[in-house]
């Protein structure tokens, strides 16, 4: 369908180009048309979900395409007035914050000598970390589950620690060239002022590396926030101990007849991620494109 509309770009573009005398940009109508289709296909399902939370069960069956009639706040209110949703929101937040902090701190620490010290075996250490890109969590998850069980690491820490470990390779790969690109004179000046390397790390490097740290931090945060596989194995049992993604599937299993309740719960679980995305959109895109190029 989109192919049809875009092939029309050729005849439409010529007059446009002649008028501007610059780049042939294709037809604005085609661009806007594709944009509208894309936005509709993306937002349509999401809006349907959010609106569904305002419906009664009967309304959803009778009139799924229209606006809710009557508008009903009960689903959302029922979820928001119970502690369960808030607990899961808190759990997800704690895990994501701890994961992000760990990934950024340990990743920056490891990237610092790899970028700015010269020592024997430096490249080997770097290569060891990069092999981590080839070990996806899916491959390691069964033994990892046993390892955590044997070590007695359970609950939210059981998510945080492996997530940090799995987040390190990409963090180090992104941070190393960034740290290496900082001018050499910085260190020389600091050392002349009597600052040690460790002092240099805390007082000079961390502030200067902030943009790159925010980028890797945002990626780690999203990864942790959306994580499903590890929680699925580790956070069985009490829903109050679950993170939001697992909470959504558990809620869905327990309320399978109340579709509009599920829609409300899923919508609420989606909102923090959407808000975070809107705030950080630039950073996320930079991070992803940077990760791909680097």
């Amino acid at each position: 369908m989109s192919v049809d509309t875009s092939t029309r770009a050729t005849p439409a573009s010529s007059p446009h180009r002649r008028r501007q005398g610059l780049l042939p940009e294709g037809s604005t109508y085609v661009a806007v048309g594709i944009a509208l289709v894309g936005v509709g296909l993306t937002l349509g399902p999401i809006l349907y979900l959010i609106l569904g939370g305002f419906r009664t069960q009967g309304d959803l069956a009778a009139n799924p395409t229209g606006l809710p009639d009557p508008w009903m706040w009960q689903n959302y209110w029922e979820i928001l007035s119970q502690p369960l949703f808030w607990r899961q929101l808190l759990n997800s937040t704690l895990v994501a914050v701890a994961t992000t902090a760990g990934v950024v701190l340990f990743g920056t620490m490891a990237a610092y000598p790899l970028a700015r010290y010269s020592f024997k075996g430096r490249e080997l250490v770097f290569v060891i970390f990069t092999t981590g890109l080839m070990f996806p969590l899916t491959v390691a998850v069964l033994p990892l589950y046993l390892l955590l069980r044997d070590m007695g690491i359970s609950g939210l820490w059981g998510l945080v620690i492996p997530q940090i470990a799995f987040g390190l390779p990409v963090t180090i790969i992104i941070l190393r060239p960034f740290l290496a690109a900082l001018p050499k004179e910085l260190e020389e000046a600091s050392f002349m002022d009597g600052i040690s390397r460790i002092g240099f790390f805390w007082r000079m490097l961390l502030p200067l590396a902030r943009p790159a740290m925010v980028t890797v931090g945002v990626l780690a945060f999203i990864g942790s926030w959306n994580a499903y596989l590890l929680p699925l194995l580790l956070l069985t049992g009490d829903p109050a101990g679950m993170t939001l993604p697992l909470g959504v599937t558990t809620f869905q299993g327990q309320h399978s007849a109340a579709t509009t309740m599920i829609m409300a719960y899923t919508s609420l679980a989606m909102l923090p991620a959407l808000a975070f995305f809107l705030l950080m959109e630039r950073r996320i895109v930079d991070g992803l494109t940077g990760a791909v190029k680097g």
Partner: peptide, 27 residues
């Protein structure tokens, strides 16, 4: 210098070997 390198790289390396490499080898 080596102590510093160990201090900086150590935590990441320990986490990585314990929770990424070891489970993969175990599999």
């Amino acid at each position: 210098k080596w102590a510093e390198i160990a201090l900086f790289v150590g935590p990441a390396m320990v986490l990585f070997l314990t929770f990424v490499v070891y489970p993969v080898v175990s599999a």
